[in-house]
């Protein structure tokens, strides 16, 4: 786990990691959220809607942002203030694992807060989501 303080991070600092997803994790997400939407759980339904396979929950892929902040950037001292995420392409299990990349784009020492721009990319190098996070630091 990283333990960056705000002083140790400069604009442009980048961290990335691989985020594994499989059918078991999709089912666990269903159990936690009770989101029974068939697009994520019914292959026939997904095919009827024009997808080759079930679509992975966008919010499951976004859960990787918790890891991005809490483990990598900045890591242990992370306090997530806000997350803005755009789901630009569907995620399929056949195109996993995903790669999560975060980069510091703003830094405010007065408020001990950084802004990170992130992208999540699938195995075929397609960007599936992108957005920004504002993250504070534990004292």
């Amino acid at each position: 786990m990283n333990r960056f303080s705000i002083k140790e991070l400069e604009i442009g600092h980048e961290e990335s990691f691989v985020f594994e997803l499989d059918e078991r994790k999709v089912k666990q997400f269903l159990m936690i959220t009770n989101d029974i939407n068939p697009l994520h759980n019914d292959l026939e339904f997904a095919r009827e809607k024009g997808y080759s396979e079930k679509v992975v929950y966008g919010m499951l892929t976004a859960s990787a942002l918790s890891t991005l902040a809490g483990v990598y950037l900045p890591g242990e001292k992370s306090l997530i203030h806000s997350v803005e995420v755009n789901f630009v392409k569907p995620v399929f299990l056949s195109r996993c694992p995903l790669t999560v990349v975060g980069k510091v784009t703003e830094k405010d020492d007065r408020f001990s807060r950084i802004t990170i721009k992130f992208t999540i990319i699938d195995k075929m190098d397609e960007k599936v989501s992108r957005g920004t996070m504002k993250i504070g630091f534990l004292e």
Binding site: H81, S82, D108, F111, R113, K134
Partner: peptide
């Protein structure tokens, strides 16, 4: 307190 930071910025 969070929106205060956003507002100031």
């Amino acid at each position: 307190s969070l929106e205060h930071i956003n507002l100031v910025v």
